[in-house]
Design a binder for these strands. Structure first.
Lengths: 211, 211, 211, 211
DNA sequence: AATGAATGAGCATTCATTCAT
DNA sequence: CATGAATGAATGCTCATTCAT
């Protein structure tokens, strides 16, 4: 009820929260405009701080970029692995959970911008791209590979070229995420429905894997 | 009659070819580094002209970008349409031809960078993105939709949500192209084989469409 | 009664000593890097305090600079004057004592950096330069002038243009000091020996002053 | 008589003259204010060009500094050497010519600021300082050493510690130059007369060197 | 008194764009 | 047509200064 309900939080609190506030703002803007076209001043403004404050937490624009990617990764993989280990049902179910889980994590949150950002900037940040591959792409592929293999071992899926199949399978989800942060919004097409899209993908996939 | 007939290409030719040489150079660099991070001077240098010359053919950096996309589009659709109209075989064959044809067009030539470029820059060029959607994405979807529909009508494919399926189906090809110009090169993974990838995609797809 | 009587120096002491610790640190860094190129944060760090603390004692970077010069002056002149008043021996001896005394004061301690600092920054701090001239240069010249005059009056020196001679005489000592804080250290020349240098200076000087 | 006598010289001309115009402007301002306190924009303005133009000729502020020193050196040494080689008169005369020649070169022109600049900035530019020592200080010392040695060999001068004496001898000229660009101007002392100063220096010196 | 997080003016540097040649 | 010297707005980054704690 107070008039200044939104007063600044105590300094101590801010100090610890700042880096995340900044990387969050940076992620949004980098995703929207690309790295080079984003001004640090805009990032700072979106995070509600001044230009100089950025440099208390990050050494340079590039360091901020790296932090954005690094942060965008942490939550992604753990869930997938636990899902894989604890899952009891059929391989189809597992595959569905993995892919839908990803979408829920990536698609709905700003984190979904990371893949588009990485696709756009990999050429300018080979180091970061390598880091991303090691920590996101490779583990992600491994998860899917395990799920596929389990299904094949149990006779639920027919034999396929697993190494290729994981990328084929993941491509539609990836494109869904990339799309949302690139051509999608500006064409404002009658709001392509992700659920219908994923259902269709899944339908085709499961039928395609039938022995 | 010219004093230097031999060494340099004939002036008349150059003059007409210039715009294409410039957009070609621009496409390569825009794809590699992104629009904002590419310097006009580098584009000019790669095309073998001076910075000022660019402005004889294009009003601004943005105009050049538009021209790059516009040029990258022209050859893409016609082949697909004639293929659709003239194809005699099964719907599966038609689908295969369409997708492989695309890959040959996108994957092997620098034109393959256009989708990655468009994905990266759509947010900064909504007009161009709309143009791209109208002239590339929508016609492309229409082609695939027709092929799918034909297969369904002939009982070769089971019924699916066609509107969604076209994007699901195209996603792996798109990803293959995008990858090649983003994360792929810098990770130098044991040269992922596009043919095997497309075969797997096709195998899954055709089985998935079986009635 | 204090809870931490042992480790840190007593608070009372620190408080009074702070300004000198700060000007001492500032003198070193200003001398090494110049005024503009020295960061207040570095000065604070060298003095073992935080950036903000500086402003408890000095209003601004410029005020700190003034204090540095002011402090660097206090001890310089008194000794010379007493030496002049109490000296009993020959004028040559007096001159030697004055010049060597200066060198001991300037050359061995960090105070030797003051002349170099003043030379470098006079243009940016005309006020401070005027202050320096009034309180250091003029009195110094007066001391030397008196010594020279005494020698001339006593027939020990031949007549010379005293006003000019004092600067001629002092130049080598000044140069020795300035050198040590500028070109000297980075060229690491076989450690030019100040004593030999001063001896030679003196030898030439005394012979040059012989009637 | 034309109204536009001072019109811009043809482009070609400027292109070649620019670097010198810029280093000349830079020398003045670096000397006056020091390296760090001089803004590139001011240098450009003094040279009558825009900020960006500087970067057509120099890669960075530091590169400009180096060029300033490098340029300030070229004319300095050659004269001295030819003077040494061609001189016919007494060693005293030679010494006088060398020192006065230096003063005319250094003292009257803006080049006189170079020593003060070097003294001030040596600590921040060790590389340049080393270059300066090798190309100016060392050759200068060598010239004076030869002159002294010649006088001693011919019995015109008594034996002295030559290595030290050269610096002792040069110190007053150096200080005269340094002074002019540091404390001198801002104290506006009754315009210390360089000629009287040098005469006194010479008088003392020659008498001091008498056998 | 002391801290150090936050600020924002200031500067070096880049690069799209212009235009005299 | 073609050039490339010149421009100056834009932006990453620094650092003196402030102030809540």
């Amino acid at each position: 009820m107070s008039l200044c309900d939104s007063a600044d939080p105590p300094r101590r609190r801010r100090k610890e929260a700042r880096p995340q506030e900044l990387t969050a703002a940076a992620l949004e803007l980098f995703t929207e405009r690309g790295f080079a076209a984003t001004r640090l001043e805009d990032i700072a403004a979106r995070a509600g701080v001044s230009k100089g404050t950025l440099y208390l937490y990050f050494d340079s624009k590039e360091a901020l970029f790296e932090a954005v990617i690094r942060e965008g990764i942490i939550p992604a993989m753990n869930e997938g692995r636990t899902m894989l280990e604890e899952h009891q049902g059929s391989a189809s179910e597992l595959l569905r959970c993995l892919l839908l889980g990803w979408w829920e994590l990536l698609g709905e949150s700003p984190l979904g911008g990371v893949p588009k950002l990485m696709v756009s900037e990999a050429g300018n940040f080979p180091k970061v791209a390598a880091f991303y591959r090691e920590n996101v792409i490779d583990p992600g592929r491994a998860l899917l590979r395990e799920a596929l293999q389990r299904g094949m071992d149990q006779g639920e899926f027919r034999p396929v070229d697993v190494g290729m199949a994981v990328d084929v399978i993941f491509a539609p989800i990836l494109m869904l995420a990339v799309w949302r942060y690139s051509i999608g919004p500006c064409c404002a097409e009658e709001e392509r429905d992700p659920v219908r899209f994923l259902d269709t993908h899944f339908d085709l996939l499961i039928k395609g894997l039938r022995p």
